[in-house]
Design a protein around this nucleic acid. Structure first.
Lengths: 139, 139
DNA sequence: TTTTTCATTTATAATTAATATAAATTATAT
DNA sequence: ATATAATTTATATTAATTATAAATGAAAAA
């Protein structure tokens, strides 16, 4: 199993302690966190961490295609460890974001209506299955 | 042809001058503008307009399903007059946003992986056909 | 080892989109 | 006319993000 240090090195990124920790957090917590969620979680174990570093690191990781930025929320950006392409569902009630593993027919297209495609984001919004179940129990 | 006043009335919205102007602007300028773009454009003809009114009006129009909010940009929200469902393409070079009229196979689905769908956003990003052409001319 | 250099991290300040609040205005109903 | 309520406006506030510069740390050169 490849370590985070190795993943960073292989991408040409100097594997600093902070970068390793942020990458590890994203990998182990597929919750599509905000910058603040990452900062709050890691601050407990790395009290010297600064929020600027989280921003900087996410930028670096993104430039090397290790993380994706999601604009699914209207108020702040969300981040995820980049695995294979997929779409996302955001619950309007609890706010959680889920991966949805549906085949996108444009995933392998080079262009759409003569525009060159470099990136595809598919966002679904509504009520997640957990909230749907909780609603039933309340009745 | 239905007037903007009528469209607002039919949606149960009091057709004020500001609301009519904002709705008209969105209808006649399918550029998916930001709040600022709407404000700047209308301010010329309606110098008393305030930016808060643009925010408020867009909220009201949205609640009555007359406008859609796009989160395609990472820095600010974009708005459009709500017509029939479609996806969007944003150019990474010039920043323009285009409607793309592609059939979405999930458009009529009620749910996805047990989550209840209420809204679907499909975003494509890359280089638009205009910028692709301009690049050729520069050589 | 010591020094130098450079990248990274951190602290701080600045920017800006969006929201909240309250006063002013306008329209509507009494 | 007057009172009431909705809307608009001005202003202040919040909060995500970016910019700037100082502090730190690690690698390279002497």
């Amino acid at each position: 199993m490849e370590t985070y240090k190795e993943i960073l090195k292989d991408s040409g990124i100097k594997p600093t302690f902070q970068r390793i920790k942020i990458l590890e957090f994203l990998d182990k917590n597929p919750i599509h966190p905000t910058v603040d969620m990452i900062y709050m979680a890691l601050f407990k174990k790395v009290p010297t961490l600064s929020k600027t570093t989280v921003y900087n690191t996410l930028d670096v990781l993104r430039q090397h295609a290790l993380v994706n930025v999601l604009t699914i929320s209207e108020s702040e950006l969300r981040y995820e460890y980049a695995r294979k392409p997929h779409h996302h569902f955001m619950c309007k009630k609890c706010g959680s974001i889920f991966d949805v593993d549906v085949g996108c027919i444009y995933q392998d297209s080079m262009s759409i209506e003569d525009h060159k495609i470099e990136e595809i984001q598919g966002y679904f919004k509504g009520i997640c299955k957990n909230c749907l179940n909780n609603n039933l129990q309340e009745n």
